[in-house]
Design a protein around this nucleic acid. Structure first.
Lengths: 134, 134
DNA sequence: CTAGACCTTCCCCCGCACTGGAAGGTCAAG
DNA sequence: CTTGACCTTCCAGTGCGGGGGAAGGTCTAG
């Protein structure tokens, strides 16, 4: 199986596969006589794992840690649990920030509705956006 | 007023001020005989405007558009409203994504709780993270 | 035999908003 | 006179996850 088909099987590009190999997420596969990468059908699972871990919000570095643990024969379960917990906290924090941002934007939109361009003193850039930094 | 004080007045660094000048957000100020940037006290308002607009979620590019409109004598109100509306939509979308991500993480955490390392077949990397991409 | 689809390595580039550091000039206080 | 705080320009790097494209080799169908 050459790199194009291998990549398609997991829904990524050949570029991405080479990149993952370069960063150590995928091992270097054997090569054909012509120098082409030659993957076994079963190799796709590891690539798919990378994608689902990514979909769960893990960074490539974190995925690399999990893979290295697994490759060294350990069960990465505990480490995975830690990572998931940390990510959950980050997501919660980000949700709070985003809700704040939404509240700010709604407040500004309200001000924008109530603002007549004629009211704006010409010396300021934009009344709507002013002085709401706090 | 030299750049350090000017920057402090708005809560940024001198580096940032130079960067804003370089990207066209701030005009080039006059220089002293020694080549130092020389700001008038009133110049701080524009810098503060940049920071509050940024706090409202606008990118520097968007802030630049608003400033250019304002500098050309136009009222940027309508444009500002458009930008705010677009940002509100982006924030809503992002909130949906994050809520999905949280749900995924909670599901995975549940699986992690219920998983005994002994149950994991050695040939897969990590059962917790597998096959939950959808 | 040739077109075109695929593969290789290589190096640089994207966005975003800065930040770090080198090498040098300037100014006020002690 | 020296120290140290400040300023100047210029170049390069950060993090993240790849993407663009050149220059060249290989394979397969018609």
């Amino acid at each position: 199986m050459r790199i194009g088909e291998f990549a398609r099987e997991a829904g990524v590009t050949a570029k991405t596969v080479r990149f993952y190999e370069q960063t150590g997420l995928l091992p270097q596969p054997p090569r054909t006589a012509a120098g082409y990468r030659d993957y076994a059908p079963g190799d796709v699972e590891r690539l798919r794992f990378v994608r689902s871990a990514q979909a769960a919000g893990l960074s490539l570095a974190e995925i690399g840690e999990v893979l290295r643990l697994s490759d060294s024969g350990q069960r990465p379960c505990a480490h995975v649990r830690d990572i998931l917990t940390a990510h959950l906290e980050q997501v919660e924090e980000r949700l709070v920030e985003l809700r704040d941002a939404r509240a700010r934007l709604l407040r500004l939109a309200e001000i924008a509705e109530a603002t007549d361009p004629g009211d704006c003193p010409p010396e300021s850039v934009c009344r709507i956006l002013r002085n709401h930094a706090s």
